[in-house]
Amino acid sequence: MSEKNFLEVKDLTIHYETDGGVVEAVNGVSFSLAQGETLGLVGETGAGKTTIALGIMNLVPNPPGKIKAGEIVFEGEDLLKKKPKEMRRIRGDKISMIFQDPMTALNPVKTVADQISEVIRLHQKLSRADALRKACEMLELVGISAERINDYPHQFSGGMKQRVVIAIALACNPSLLIADEPTTALDVTIQAQVIEMMGRLKEELKTSMILITHDLGVVAEMCDKVAIMYAGEVVEYGALEDIYEGEHHHPYTVGLFGAIPDLDKDTDRLTPIDGLMPDPMALPQGCNFCPRCPHRRPECETLPPKPHEVSPGHTIRCHLFGKEEA
C-alpha cells in the first residue's frame, strides 16, 4: 500500500438518532493522511470533530450514534467493515486516542501503573513485571518520575493527568494517534509543555497524528495538513501553507482567522463571526454557512456547494469558487 493511503476517510457520515430528531453530526467528510503526517481538524465546538475521531476508533456511542455511510481505510483495510474483535486489536495498539478532558479520562480507582500496563498487556505478550517496567518507562518518557507509578489519578495535577493519558496512548507505539483537544482543559503554561512534548514524541516515534483543536496557533506549529470543519462538513482542506498563506479561502476560514486578534493593530474588541452555528438537527438546505456568510448569493440558499479544488490538494466547499471554473 502506498504511503498516501495510510489513512483515508471517504464520505464519512455519522448521525445521532435521538428521540428529539436526527443530529447530523458529520456529513460526507473526506480526508487522507500519509505516514508521519499530522492533520489538524479545526472548527468550533459542535462541528463534529470529536465524532469523526470516535468514528475512526469505532467508538461512536451506539445508540444513539450511527455511522450512516463512508469508508475509513486504514493501512488498506476498511475499519468500518472490521469485526468488533478485530477492531479491539487495532484500538490502543495501532490507533490510539488522547481524550479531551484529562480530569475524567482516567479511572479514579485504579493506579496509574494498572492503567498504563493494561494497554501494554492487551497488545503485547509481556509478563506483568515487564509490562510494569514498560509502564514506568512510558511515565518517564512523558516527564513524570517513575516513583509515582503506584499513585492514583487524584494524586496528580491536571497537566500530569494529561501526560498519563498521553503515556497510555503512546504505550504501544501506535501508527496513528488521534489527539482530541489535548490541551483545552489545561492552563496556558501547561498547554505549551504538553504541545511541545507531543511534537517531540511524534518525531521520536514517527507517529501520524490527527490533532483536533480550535487553537490555530497550535495547528500552525504542529500540522502538515489542515481541515477546517463547519457544521459537520470539511469546508476547506489543504496543506498548512494553503490554509495559512494561500490566496483563496472559504469565507468561514477567513472569519476564523479574522477572529484572531492582531498584535500590530490597536483594537478594543475581537472580530467575531456574526451569528451562530446552525442547529445540527435542522441544517440549512443549501450551504451550511450561508446564514452567516458575508458573500452569500441566491444559489447558496438552495444548493449545497461541492468541494472545489482551487489548487492541487487544496479544496474549498463554496459556490464562490465552483463558479469560476464553470
Binding site: M57, L59, R88, R89, I90, R91, G92, D93, S96, M97, F99, D101, T104, A105, L106, N107, P108, V109, K110, E118, V119, L122, H123, V165, I168
Partner: peptide, 26 residues
C-alpha cells in the same frame, strides 16, 4: 457514561472487562 470507560474501550479492552474491571468498582 464516564470518560474513563471510553478510555478503557479505546485501549482495546473487551466489553466484559470494561464492565467488570472498570465500571463495577466505580
Amino acid at each position: 457514561r464516564q470518560d474513563y470507560i471510553r478510555t478503557a474501550k479505546a485501549k482495546g479492552q473487551t466489553e466484559l472487562k470494561v464492565v467488570m474491571g472498570h465500571a463495577l468498582p466505580n
